[in-house]
């Protein structure tokens, strides 16, 4: 039983000069599932995400979102189509307040890629404000929402980053190591949040190093090594796969 395919990565190759970063990657992401991509450092995980959001163009192959080719489209078009990426190193608006940081993606969702409204007042945007407030509540950032985001701790910045992604209610959320550099407590809190929002039917792709995170969240796991997919399946199948243990888990333990 295969559900509706949201993201379809077909025969994607990516070379940087002589380096083969991705070779013939095929991957189907099912609607409503959490799909984890794991693999050792330099396996091409981030490159794959970058291809999906339009930061990089593949050397060959296509990425389809909802059946439509998104390779070669501008990043803002891919976002507007409903693919949102949460960055590994927090990419926020450090000069703005936490609230403003979350209201901006909410405005993008409502108004589209461009809208000229210089005589509207932000204080009249109660819907946007409420949406942002809700997500900030979820992320535990509500008490500090009028503070400048630039002075937040790294862990808080990552939660803000996640809030900025969630407020757009994307069809597909791409998470690049959402718990990297977090304490155990923060990691668990993030896992809980991700499980909670799973019920909202958002499809998620997670790149993660932390096996604890992967095995407690993922419905399906793809293992990437040296730019190619070497295994794919449910968490239990992956855990028992000797090829995976050799390439990845063996090295880690």
């Amino acid at each position: 039983m295969v559900g509706n395919i949201v993201l379809n990565i077909q025969n994607v190759d990516k070379t940087f000069g002589g380096l083969q970063a991705l070779s013939n990657v095929n991957m189907q992401i099912e609607e409503g599932k959490i799909h984890a991509i794991i693999g050792p450092n330099g396996a091409g995980k981030s490159t794959l995400l970058n291809v999906c959001i339009g930061r990089l163009e593949p050397t060959s192959g296509t990425v389809r979102f909802d059946g439509e080719i998104i390779t070669g489209k501008a990043p803002y078009e891919i976002n507007q189509a409903g693919v949102v990426r949460v960055f590994q190193t927090p990419e926020i608006f450090p000069e703005l307040t936490i609230l403003e940081n979350v209201m901006i993606p909410a405005l993008a969702k409502r108004d589209g890629a461009f809208s000229f409204n210089p005589f509207k007042s932000m204080s009249d945007e109660t819907d946007i404000f409420k949406e942002a407030e809700l997500v900030l509540e979820d992320m535990g950032l509500i008490d500090q929402m009028y503070d400048h985001s630039g002075s937040m701790s790294r862990g808080d910045k990552r939660r803000l980053e996640l809030a900025m992604g969630l407020v757009q209610r994307p069809r597909l959320l791409l998470l690049d190591e959402p718990t990297a550099g977090m304490s155990r407590a923060d990691t668990n809190a993030t896992i809980e949040t991700l499980i909670r929002i799973k019920e909202r039917g958002m499809t998620k792709v997670i790149i993660e190093h932390d096996m604890h995170v992967v095995f407690s969240l993922a419905d399906k796991i793809s293992v990437l090594a040296q730019g190619a997919i070497i295994a794919e399946g449910a968490p239990d199948e992956i855990r028992g796969n000797p090829k995976v243990q050799e390439a990845y888990l063996g090295g880690a333990h």
Binding site: I53, R55, A74, P75, Y76, N79, Q80, R85, F87, E91, I92, F93, P94, E95, L96, I104, P105, A108, K109, G112, A113, F114, M164, Q168
Partner: peptide, 11 residues
């Protein structure tokens, strides 16, 4: 503040 982020935010 961060033009690149704006592009990935859909603007």
């Amino acid at each position: 503040s961060n033009q690149n982020r704006m592009r990935y935010t859909g603007f």
